[in-house]
Every structure is written in C-alpha cells, then in structure tokens.
C-alpha cells in the first residue's frame, strides 16, 4: 500500500492517466482502481478521474449506469499511423540529451536479457 495521501497530486494524476492509456478499452472507476494494483483508495481514484476530466485530459461517457473513461486524444481520426510516426520523430534527439528509459537491444542483448528475466522470475531455482 503506497501512502497515496502524501504523494503529490501530479504523480497520482500521471499514474491514473497511464493506466487509462495502458488499457485498450474505456474503464470504469473500479476498473481503474484495479488496474493500478489496488494501491489507491476508490474515492481517491474517483477524485483524480474527476480532476482529469475537468482538465480535459480524459473523456467521460456513459456505459449503462456507470461512467467510463478514456484518455483524450485530440482529433483521433487525424492520427493516422503515419502522422503518429512523424510526431514521435519530432521528439527524437540525435544529441542524446533526452535520457531514454531503454536503449536499443542487439540480438545478443535480447537473448541475455530474456535469460536474466527468466532467472529473476523463479528465484527458488537458484538455490
């Protein structure tokens, strides 16, 4: 259980928005709470969703008796795969000043990495 109350509001908003983006379909508030691993109280999630909606970061629609939420994407139809690609390319940095989360893997790297992850997932086998 993370101490949600003591974390900055911006961090919680970011986490909820990330959860909505990670889901491929609209989510109800309980589904959002679940997809966050249950670390936030239901009321906290509801408050954050309302705040995100107020800011226009998410879209709210009715599904039966409940509200469902999706991330707001400006003019979805215009975002063809090609355009998305160029959008990202504009954020590309040849100077390397943007610290990227992960760099490219060589085929060898990929093999080593899969081995490391497989071993990490079954810690008992090491003993």
């Amino acid at each position: 259980m993370t101490d949600a109350a003591r974390r900055p509001a911006g961090e919680l908003e970011a986490e909820v928005l990330a959860a909505l983006w990670a889901a491929r379909s609209p989510l109800t508030p309980p589904q959002v709470q679940q997809s966050l691993g249950g670390t936030l109280a239901r009321t906290t999630v509801a408050t954050i969703l309302a705040r995100l909606h107020g800011k226009g970061a998410v879209i709210r629609s009715r599904a039966g008796r409940a509200y469902v939420y999706t991330p707001a994407v400006e003019d979805e139809a215009a975002l063809t795969a090609r355009r998305m690609h160029t959008e990202l390319e504009k954020g590309d940095d040849r100077s390397g000043v943007l610290a990227r989360f992960v760099s490219r893997l060589t085929p060898d790297d990929e093999q080593v990495l899969r081995g490391l992850l497989a071993r990490a997932e079954e810690p008992e086998s090491r003993q």
Partner: peptide
C-alpha cells in the same frame, strides 16, 4: 495531452 508531469504520445 497529459496530466501531472506525464505526457503521453499516441
């Protein structure tokens, strides 16, 4: 769009 300190590229 984004929220808090997060920007999501679609």
């Amino acid at each position: 769009g984004g929220a808090g300190d997060l920007t999501v590229l679609p």
